[in-house]
Structure formats: structure tokens, C-alpha cells
């Protein structure tokens, strides 16, 4: 089975200040894991650490039978230049990068796959539209279509449903469930706890320190007691170097 991710005493942060502190654990292949916690708890940081965009301050992220090439990542607010003259079809087709690279042309299969992906997110008819003319929800649908085309074993979603209407959330969530059915490993940073309770079997509660990790009902019970909210958000420049082993 492919797709396990291992955290080994992982500390991630900025300027020596930890944002994720001493996280250890293993994400089984085929997991559908929700990551919850207050703002500034290190959720996005953890995803960046997994993609390799951020180097660990301590510890490591290890992959079993997965390489970074198998990971697809949808950042929180995609740093997309929407004024660039690019069509929806072209945007979705960039998901084909691993197959077509610098020069490879899109063959008939690739094109069919791209059209299928656009249809699956309900954007048929928008292919030729410029990305600058899309609404927030439509753009998110297009980015999900790109994820479909990427066809990755591991999918990281950072607040994919923020500022998205209920119908779009339902549609996109159906795609996520579909990926789960295909035994892909999915990590999603979320704030809507009702949605997490209803749809995600496993949850990690993060508040810089990992507070709880496991079955969703159990973790959300811990969330209520939430020491998490008491977390000191501001980094302290005079804080002593951390000597904890693990």
C-alpha cells in the first residue's frame, strides 16, 4: 500500500520560533484526516512542511513509498495572478505537468481527462473563460479540477471550503469523498467542526503542540476542553532554546 506519512519529532517554524512543536505520529495510507485548531496553531505550516516548502527546525517528515512528486497541494489563498490572460482549460491543464513537463504536448487522452475534470467540478462551458472573470467559488472549483488532473496519491487541502457557498462545498466535498474511496491519502485543514464531525473519520487537533490525534469524536471532545485557546500566540524573542528530546 502506498501513501503513509511519518512525523518524527517534527518541529516546524519561522526564525527559530516553533509553529508546530514536537509532532510525532503516522498517517496511514488512505486516511481522510481533518486538521483543526485555532488560527496560528500551525496547521498551514504543517502542510508546508509536508510539501517540503518549509525545512524542519528539528525532526523530519518521512514518506513510505511516496515521493514529494506524489503530493498535490492546494494552498489556502492560492497566490494566483488572476489578471494573467489564461483560460480555465489552460489552468486545469497545468495539473498535467508531471506528464507533459516543459514541452510535452497534450495528447487526446490528456485532453479528455482535463475535460472530464472540468465536468466533474461543474464548470463545463467555462473552458474558454479567462480565470480573471471567475468568482471565488468557481476558481476553487477550477483548482479542484486541477487536483483531479494531477491524480496524486496524497492530497493536501488548506482551508478548501473557506468563503465558499453551501452548494459548492457539497460538490467539492463529494469529490473529496470520492478520492477517499480511491484510497488516496487526504489531509484537510478545516474550521467547520460540524463538517469535520460528519465527514472525516480521523482528526488532528493542533495548537502548536499536537493536542489530540485520533478518532474524530474523541478529538473533538478534547477540542471542547480546549487548552488550545489559551495558547500564547505571540512568539517570544527571549524564549530559551527548547531542549525537549521528543
Amino acid at each position: 500500500m502506498r501513501g503513509a506519512i511519518h512525523f518524527d519529532n517534527l518541529t516546524l517554524g519561522y526564525d527559530r520560533h516553533p509553529a508546530v512543536h514536537h509532532l510525532s505520529g503516522r498517517i496511514e495510507p488512505g486516511s481522510l484526516l481533518a486538521i483543526v485548531g485555532p488560527n496560528g496553531a500551525g496547521k498551514s505550516t504543517l502542510l508546508k512542511g509536508i510539501t517540503g516548502a518549509l525545512k524542519p527546525l528539528q525532526g523530519r517528515v518521512a514518506f513510505e513509498n511516496v515521493t514529494r512528486a506524489d503530493i498535490a497541494y492546494l494552498p489556502q489563498a492560492a497566490d494566483l495572478d488572476r489578471s494573467f490572460p489564461l483560460s480555465v482549460f489552460d489552468l486545469v491543464s497545468t495539473g498535467n505537468w508531471r506528464r507533459s513537463g516543459f514541452f510535452g504536448r497534450l495528447n487526446r487522452d490528456h485532453r479528455a481527462r482535463i475535460h472530464e475534470a472540468i465536468a466533474a467540478v461543474g464548470l463545463t462551458g467555462f473552458e474558454a473563460r479567462a480565470i480573471g472573470t471567475l468568482s471565488g467559488g468557481q476558481l476553487q472549483r477550477a483548482l479542484f479540477a486541477r487536483l483531479i488532473v494531477q491524480d496524486a496519491r496524497v492530497i493536501l487541502l488548506d482551508e478548501p471550503f473557506t468563503a465558499i457557498d453551501a452548494k459548492t462545498v457539497a460538490d467539492l466535498l463529494a469529490l473529496v469523498k470520492n478520492w477517499h474511496g480511491e484510497a488516496r491519502t487526504i489531509l484537510a485543514v478545516l474550521h467547520d467542526l460540524d463538517l469535520v464531525r460528519a465527514q472525516f473519520p480521523e482528526t488532528l487537533l493542533l495548537a502548536r503542540e499536537p493536542v489530540a490525534w485520533g478518532e474524530t469524536a474523541m478529538v473533538l471532545a478534547a477540542h471542547k476542553r480546549l487548552a488550545a485557546r489559551a495558547m500564547i500566540e505571540a512568539p517570544d524573542d527571549d524564549a530559551a532554546p527548547c531542549t525537549r528530546a521528543a
Partner: peptide, 23 residues
């Protein structure tokens, strides 16, 4: 012509390009 595709992607979505390529 050789760098057209990554150059366009680097303009539109540099984060995505970073996630799929070191180019």
C-alpha cells in the same frame, strides 16, 4: 519557446510551479 510553459506558470501560479518543479 523553450521556457514558455514554465515561464507562464511562474507568472500565473508560482506556488504551484514550485510544488511540481524546480524550474
Amino acid at each position: 519557446a523553450l521556457i514558455l510553459r514554465p515561464l507562464i506558470l511562474d507568472c500565473v501560479d508560482p506556488g504551484f510551479l514550485r510544488s511540481v518543479s524546480r524550474a
